[in-house]
Computed example of a mutant assay.
Amino acid sequence: MATRAVDLVRAWEPPVAADRLRRHVEVLAAGPRSRRHAPRAMADAETYVTAALRSAGWQVRRQPFDVRWRVGATDRPGNRAIALKARVHPRLRGANLIATLPGAGTGPAVVLGAHLDTVQGSPGADDNASGVAVLLESAHLLATLPDAPPVVLAVFDMEELGLIGSRHAVRALGRERSIRGMVCLESVGFFSEEEGSQRLPGGFSAVFPAAASATRDAGLRGNFTLVVHRRSSAEAAVAWQRAAAQTAPALPGILLRDPRPDGLLGALAGLAVPPANHLGRSDHAPFWNAGIPALMLTGTANFRNPAYHRPADTSDLLDYPRLAAVTAATAATVAAWAALPEA
Rank of each mutant, 00 (worst) to 15 (best):
A324R: 08
P252S: 01
P274I: 07
F208D: 10
A212D: 12
I254D: 00
P311F: 08
Y48A: 03
V49C: 13
L323T: 10
G253T: 03
E194P: 02
P341R: 12
S122K: 08
Q59S: 15
D157N: 09
M182R: 01
A243T: 09
G57A: 06
D217W: 08
F287E: 03
P259R: 09
I292F: 01
A324T: 10
A339M: 03
G219L: 09
G107M: 10
P252R: 06
P150A: 09
R281P: 00
L141D: 02
T215E: 00
F287C: 01
D313K: 10
A5N: 05
G266L: 11
G103K: 09
L295D: 03
A234N: 06
Y48L: 15
R93G: 02
L161Y: 15
A5H: 09
R80V: 12
P201H: 00
V110E: 02
Q241F: 02
G113A: 14
A51F: 02
P149K: 06
Y320M: 10
D126M: 06
R23L: 10
D262N: 12
S34V: 07
R62D: 05
L141A: 12
W12T: 07
A139R: 01
G222L: 10
N302A: 13
D66Y: 07
L142M: 05
P306V: 14
F65N: 06
T3Y: 06
A294R: 06
E13A: 14
R175N: 07
A329L: 05
R80Q: 13
V16N: 00
F287Q: 04
S213W: 12
V170F: 06
Y320V: 11
A290G: 09
L226H: 01
A18T: 09
D44S: 10
A211F: 01
G57W: 05
T118Y: 04
M42P: 00
S138R: 03
A329H: 05
G57N: 07
A2C: 04
S187P: 09
Q59A: 14
G253C: 01
A332T: 11
R310F: 03
P293S: 04
G280K: 13
V60W: 04
G202S: 07
W240E: 03
W12K: 06
A169P: 02
R33G: 04
V71F: 13
G162I: 14
L268E: 05
D126A: 09
H284N: 14
A172W: 14
R242K: 12
P311V: 11
L136T: 08
G94F: 04
S187A: 15
R221I: 04
R61P: 00
S205W: 08
P274L: 06
R221L: 03
R62Q: 14
E186Y: 00
V60S: 05
E186S: 07
A41S: 13
D44R: 13
A248Q: 14
H278L: 15
K85C: 13
F303G: 04
R304P: 10
L265V: 15
A38S: 13
P306N: 09
R242E: 15
R4S: 15
P102G: 12
P123H: 07
A243R: 04
V67W: 12
T50M: 10
P102N: 11
Q246G: 01
A51V: 11
P261C: 08
L295N: 05
C184P: 01
S282K: 00
D126R: 08
S187K: 02
